[in-house]
Design a protein around this nucleic acid. Structure first.
Lengths: 213, 213
DNA sequence: TTTTTATGTTAACGGCGTTAAGTATATTTG
DNA sequence: CAAATATACTTAACGCCGTTAACATAAAAA
């Protein structure tokens, strides 16, 4: 018997808020995306957001989920690559492309703690399933490595450990690149380090090392 | 003819500020360390800090330097390890220990952008030497790898590229551990991943892979 | 129609980094 | 010594921030 009560703003305000947050976020980065600015963009009072999201971490978490959706879609495409080791390599490059091309999303997904804070709060109150977004992405990597092992690659290695190592390596490269530390270092070390494409070259080197082992 | 003019606070206020900042920082983390709290701890007005530091990034940069001093000291001790590959492995574990044992310092040194912002401002005005702290740490790693290569390890590898790869791998592991992403993942994947010591085990696995190549 | 409930708003709290203007004191200068 | 000046620091304020409490209003239920 209970239908929707009323709506001053026509659409689902929850979605409108998220959409505005996303636009601000992509246009001006996380630092310049405040609750108040989101509200202003939607045309509502800042406090109204708190009717639809618990707090800022909750909003940020929603964006974090969007980021994982994008990444998952890109990984999905790679399932068309038949040869497993080729697929693994492509996945690595894909991950790097995503990290560099969506810096702010990447930060939300793998660097910032706020989105995870939300998870812990939720987990404390309801029964919840942990970090399912990250879990999904990691499982995609796991599957590819398993396929590689079926074809004889990485013999004797513990699958999940290897996956973790590969992920950590990619994350290390991307994180250092995105926050500027890598550029500062390569600029200082231009004699020893080739300035351009350090990132992808490092990845190729890693692949090379893996292939030998 | 010009001696010191006067001092309401006896000691070097610049040092007192840094010391207070450090204490707050280590006790309550970066998020809870504000200019105003630092000032309160020293017993001065918040604006006084700006007579000794350009802005917050400047203070943060000073702490960032302290972090590198600690790390450099620990690396220095490892010079006593004679065998170069053993030294390299020890260096890796040392890096991990530092990252886990000094989370806030680590964040300042390798994750946050604020300290680097300070560098860029300084570089814009004066002639400056770039990120000399990071450069120093990286050179320490470079030297060890060079020694390894002298003994026949890592034949054919580009020294600096390999160093970068190793660093990125360690950073990836430490960063994911410190911000909680790694723990969330291992908790979700306890079937596939051994819960304890994932970090060190990953490192050992990496060493193992390197040794084969 | 009256009551209740969903859906917003306004006002306010306590925090933040930072700047401009003012004050007192010690040194230099006349 | 007295006046001018430079130094060391403070007060007041600006414009942000996330968040809560109290209040208003319109629609549905009684």
């Amino acid at each position: 018997m209970r239908a929707k009560k009323k709506r001053k703003h026509k659409g689902d305000l929850r979605d409108e808020i998220l959409s505005a947050a996303k636009k601000l976020f992509l246009a001006h980065g996380y630092l310049n995306t405040s609750m108040r600015k989101i509200a202003a963009k939607v045309g509502i009072s800042p406090t109204t957001i708190y009717l639809y999201y618990r707090d800022k971490a909750d909003v940020i978490h929603a964006l974090h989920q969007e980021g994982f959706k994008i990444l998952a879609e890109q990984f999905k495409i790679l399932e068309n690559v038949e040869h497993p080791f080729e697929r693994l390599k492509a996945m690595g490059r894909c991950y790097i492309n995503f990290a560099l091309g969506n810096r702010d999303f990447y930060e939300l997904m793998f660097i910032m703690q706020e989105p995870l804070m939300h998870l812990e709060k939720q987990q404390a109150s309801e029964r919840s399933s942990g970090w399912k977004e990250g879990e999904g992405a990691f499982k995609a990597l796991l599957d590819v490595i398993k396929d590689c092992q079926k074809e004889g690659y990485f013999e004797g290695y513990h699958t999940a450990e290897l996956a973790l190592l590969l992920w950590a390596n990619l994350h290390g490269l991307c994180a250092l690149k995105n926050n500027g530390h890598l550029d500062l270092l390569t600029r200082a070390m231009e004699e020893e380090l080739p300035v351009s494409n350090v990132l992808y070259k490092s990845f190729e080197l890693y692949v090379q090392i893996l292939q030998k082992g």
